[in-house]
């Protein structure tokens, strides 16, 4: 039952929701950052001429895309970080370090697999003529990639990366299962204090929507503007 009274009680815990939102945003931003770096390495391995690197990268991407995120999260938290004693400190007074770090690691490992495919497609979408021109001028492989191909590829895939950020905001809710105090964890806490679940859930829904909807719209705006600029 949703009641006005229930909302009144829930709103008393708004500061906890704001902290949960802060955690969700921090979790997502760090995930995109580390996921992107990992993805860049994976994509370069995938496009390298060494068969072993290619195979390793493909295997990584396939495994992470073919297994549930929840399973990956649990493996990271219960197995990978089992023997690692992270300090039980709280960042900004509310982010539990020992839960937050495994959460970021698991999400980044997962997101890296998806972003790898985006980056690879971005690199392959750059006209081969750009590479040929660079090489014909005497630039080596690395210089060509760094100065000519990647800057263009990354500009083209910025919208896709931003979309991945939106996806991660939503998927990061799964980290509640390992005790990361993000938005969904707040819902559980408020439920414990107020004995009602509906109202906290609706508040969480509204917060997620306010985070993702405007972001998507901004991305769409830039996507449209960029595609206009690229027309010849």
């Amino acid at each position: 039952m949703i009641t006005v009274e229930g909302f009144e009680k829930t709103f008393r815990y708004m500061s906890m929701f704001w902290q949960g939102m802060g955690t969700t945003v921090a979790l997502s931003l760090l995930t995109v950052f580390f996921g992107f770096i990992l993805a860049l390495i994976l994509a370069l391995m995938r496009l390298s001429k060494f068969k072993v690197l290619k195979a390793l990268s493909s295997a990584y991407v396939e495994i992470f895309r073919a297994t549930p995120l929840l399973v990956q999260l649990f493996i990271v938290y219960y197995i990978l970080f089992d023997g690692i004693a992270l300090p039980g400190i709280k960042l900004f007074g509310f982010i539990r370090f020992d839960r937050f770090v495994p959460g970021v690691v698991a999400l980044s490992l997962n997101s890296g697999a998806y972003l790898c495919e985006i980056i690879r497609a971005g690199i392959q979408s750059i006209d081969i003529g750009q590479t040929e021109a660079a090489r014909s001028l005497g630039l080596n492989r690395v210089q060509t990639l760094k100065l000519v191909v990647l800057p263009q590829a990354i500009k083209n895939i910025l919208p896709a990366i931003a979309n991945e950020f939106v996806t991660i905001i939503k998927e990061s809710s799964i980290c509640y299962t390992i005790g990361v105090q993000e938005i969904m964890y707040t819902v559980a806490s408020v439920k414990g204090a107020t004995f009602s679940i509906g109202e906290p859930l609706l508040v969480a829904t509204a917060i997620y929507f306010c985070l993702t909807f405007p972001t998507s719209k901004v991305i769409q705006y830039f996507e449209r503007r960029m595609s206009r600029g690229d027309r010849r």
Partner: peptide, 18 residues
């Protein structure tokens, strides 16, 4: 690369860095 330095190439589709 050090050989290509000495040979300029011009392509049908220009291939300027966009």
């Amino acid at each position: 690369d050090s050989i290509r330095e000495h040979m300029g190439m011009v392509f049908q589709h220009f291939n300027l860095f966009s």
